[in-house]
Design a protein around this nucleic acid. Structure first.
Lengths: 337, 337
DNA sequence: TTGTATGCGTTATCAG
DNA sequence: CTGATAACGCATACAA
């Protein structure tokens, strides 16, 4: 690959002159510029941004480290991040941890080595290794979706508590009393908040809380299948399932189908986060949706404001409301069924 | 951020000694090593891979430029790429062009500036700007999914012709004669091959080819809705729809639902590529699936073999077979309906 | 308007 | 075993 020196030689000028042409900086005569541009074209010269970044100490690159790239919620959020980044002249590197803290720390490490300018992190929440790594570097970062207890950091997340409260309230109003909570991992804040919202709604509406109805698993399809199986074995039987995320809902639906249990006729089902592709075909799942795209965009803008040091306020915690979408998966009021 | 010099100063050694500790290269006494490691830990030192790459002229990074990150086919393929890359100590940068050749060329340009070691490209197939750019740099790259006419490049793609032939044959065997082909863009090789396979199956089974049944659009949901509408207005009416990809199928299903047309009772439907999340819930769509993950992995290994110059053969074209999955969306034989 | 010297953080080479 | 020097490609400061 041609370097700036090759171009300079070919155009009969000094490297710095080529640099000036490329960056439109300083003075260059029309004629020189033309000669340089010709040389650039002939040699297919492409500037080396590594060298440039080494000088500037800026890569104009952000990193987004998330837990599950196959989840549409995150692909949507990622687009929000990317668009906001691009608008401000930043590139994005996206990494997928599969909820594995080890991979997460590894990626953070590699990205630090690559001198990214800032991080957006959806932590897997095992230990806080990667958070510590980041704080050790005093590099700006924003935590997405999840709350890290005891650490002062910028956070942008959905209102899990509120969403769960409303979904549960909806089920209660339809007459449900025994609602199984198919939750995520207990150490992840979103799972815990959703359980809290669920519990709170029950208490608020004077429905007894049966702790056996609260089942913990993972935010994955396989776990959804398993959780639903456990829910079906509960006595007295439950009449509704609350899936703590969309992948749990997909898994639960599979279990229900295998068991010949119809939704909503035999069982009500609600979930947090939608399944866009499935909903385009069969819009039937009642859900609380988070503004995924906006979450990504807002977090990115917050991060960029930290980068440009235009902001000197303390850590921010931004909580975005969820929207309830009522569809058929809850059916009619129980007593009329 | 601390540099290698800061560490060296702190440990009372020369920078190069720190380098040797980090890379386990050359001789370093146990004691010196310990002092250096202590300094590294105290300063939270993270090596700068930009500087390293500048020296090595290797970034150990591959780029995957694809057309639609929201399509599960591509997220799956991307995982195949990433896993194969990681196995060989390479990182991956993923870019999404939305089928826009301009964005594509822009990304290729940026990635070249960033000195990635090789490219995996799903071309949008407008002009061949990005292909030319790559060839101008003599940087190794592999084209995924699509055939670029008149350019000798490594290619890995699915057997669109074969898949379309088999799906069409299936419909014909069920008694269908008027099958609308909801195709992608005519200038994209996969769309063209799928139409060819469709046409060929009709001819092979002595079904007259009605060119009006072949409708061209885009590989997107909105286009699928539109194509289906056009198909429904054809006379005499069609009895089956062939969606050239999964997103077209999703769109078509929406149009059918709006029109109150049931699948498969009133209309048969087949597609190329599955809709995994929807299929987990309602496995009903008869499809020809490509081995997406393997496609990504195979292409990556081919690229890496070019990089290590272990391979000196001419351009390879690898064609992967599709697998037909028969589900209910085609229903029974027409005459028994 | 153009060019020279210098340094970004790292490591290969060669010397001690 | 350890270190000084130079170079990777580019752009800033300062001259000419």
């Amino acid at each position: 690959m041609a370097t700036i020196r090759d171009v300079a030689k070919r155009a009969g000028v000094a490297p710095i002159t080529v640099s000036r042409v490329i960056n439109n900086s300083g003075y260059v005569s029309q004629e020189t510029r033309k000669r340089v541009e010709a040389a650039i074209a002939e040699l297919h010269y492409v500037p080396n941004s590594l060298a440039r970044s080494l000088r500037f100490k800026r890569t104009h690159t952000l990193a987004l480290v998330l837990t599950d790239i196959t989840n549409p919620f995150w692909t949507t959020a990622a687009r929000g991040v990317e668009d906001a980044a691009r608008e401000n002249g930043f590139n994005l590197i996206l990494c997928n941890t599969d909820e594995d803290e080890k991979r997460e720390a590894e990626y953070v490490r590699v990205l630090l080595e690559r001198q990214v300018d800032g991080f957006l992190l959806v932590p897997a929440c095992g230990d806080n290794r990667s958070i510590m790594l980041l704080q050790g570097q005093s590099i700006p970062f924003v935590v997405l979706d999840r709350h890290i207890p005891g650490v002062r950091v910028d956070t942008v997340r959905g209102d899990s508590f509120g969403g769960a409260f409303e979904l549960t309230t909806h089920l209660i109003r339809l007459g449900h009393r025994r609602i199984a909570m198919l939750s995520g991992p207990p150490h992840v804040s979103t799972a815990e908040s959703r359980v809290s919202g669920y519990r709170r709604a029950l208490i608020y509406h004077n429905v007894p809380v049966d702790e056996d109805l609260i089942l913990y698993g993972e935010y994955k399809e396989a776990s959804g299948r398993d959780l639903a199986r456990r829910a079906l074995s509960l006595q007295p039987p439950v009449t509704a399932l609350f899936a703590a995320n969309n992948f749990i809902a997909i898994g639960a639906l599979q279990t229900l189908r295998e068991a010949g249990i119809r939704v909503p006729q035999d069982m009500a089902l609600v979930s947090i986060d939608d399944i866009p592709q499935a909903s385009a075909i069969y819009p039937f799942l009642t859900v609380a949706v988070q503004p995924a795209y906006e979450m990504g965009a807002i977090a990115t803008r917050l991060l960029l404001s930290r980068l440009s040091e235009q902001s000197d306020h303390g850590p921010l915690e931004i909580v975005l409301p969820m929207t309830i979408i009522l569809r058929e998966s809850c059916g009619q009021h129980l007593s009329s069924a």
